[in-house]
């Protein structure tokens, strides 16, 4: 399968993983609020992701299509 998986981790050690399929579909898991905002901006028509991105959280907190 032609796909690219990426583990994204910020300075606080938070991480999400995304899998980009050859057809352009994106799967994600361990979605942080920041990643939800990114995914929502990538596809504004994804209503489910918009709702996840809209959950209010203090993004300065330090600390699927949802998958397996």
């Amino acid at each position: 399968m032609n796909a690219k998986t990426t583990r994204q981790e910020n300075a606080a050690g938070e991480h999400s993983e995304i899998l980009i399929l050859a057809g352009g579909k994106i799967l994600a898991h361990n979605i942080t609020p920041v990643m939800a905002q990114v995914l929502s901006e990538l596809n504004p028509e994804d209503a489910a992701m918009s709702r996840r991105a809209g959950r209010t959280i203090n993004l300065n907190f330090q600390t699927d299509e949802l998958s397996n």
């Binding site: 606080a12 050690g13 938070e14 991480h15 994600a28 898991h29 361990n30 979605i31 942080t32 609020p33 939800a36 709702r51 996840r52 991105a53 959950r55 959280i57 907190f61 600390t63 699927d64 949802l66």
Partner: peptide, 18 residues
């Protein structure tokens, strides 16, 4: 291996500290 706020789970449960 992980402890962070996530919004991956059921809408009624998020944001969740997982």
């Amino acid at each position: 291996f992980s402890a962070q706020i996530e919004v991956s789970d059921e809408l009624e449960l998020i944001p969740s500290f997982a």
